[in-house]
Design a protein around this nucleic acid. Sequence first.
DNA 1: AGTTCGGACCGTT
DNA 2: AACGGTCCGAACT
Length: 163
Amino acid sequence: MATALIQTADGTFTAHFSEYGLAGLHFPAGEAVPRPPTHEPSAPWNSWSRLTERALNQALAGKTPGPLPPLDLSSGTVFQRCVWNALRKIPSGVTRSYAQVARTIGRPEAVRAVGQACGANPIPVVIPCHRVLAAGGKLGGFSSGLDWKRKLLAREGAILELG
DNA sequence: AGTTCGGACCGTT
DNA sequence: AACGGTCCGAACT
């Protein structure tokens, strides 16, 4: 595994790469980053890092990102990967409810479990867990802070709340 | 219209 | 056994 710092207009994100691809992404930490990352020149990490930086900046700007590095979602359970996969199909600017996602994956009753799976999403922003709201257009929760959720949705031009 | 309460539901630790 | 990024209906203010 390698750690890379990803520079964006919103601060420095931290990315984790396995030998299979991007495995984790963290929002800018409040404090200074502990240690500088180490790179193995031979690995594809530098290439993936560049792809991640480009895609992440696009996403943060509310635009649909282009090519992504391979994603390593092996940390998740079958159910979680199922949910994350469904999340990736939600277009930018569009929102779904936890119940809708539950229906999409064929488990209409596993609503709370879907919420739980969203919280376990290892690659936020790229895997748009922020596009899932509570019923009635209410914001719902967000592991990394609701400010981020609001900000991301606003950048995409998503409609929030109700008139 | 907004709120609180109480069950019911399901995957993860 | 307990906890969640839930949902829905009912009964309030």
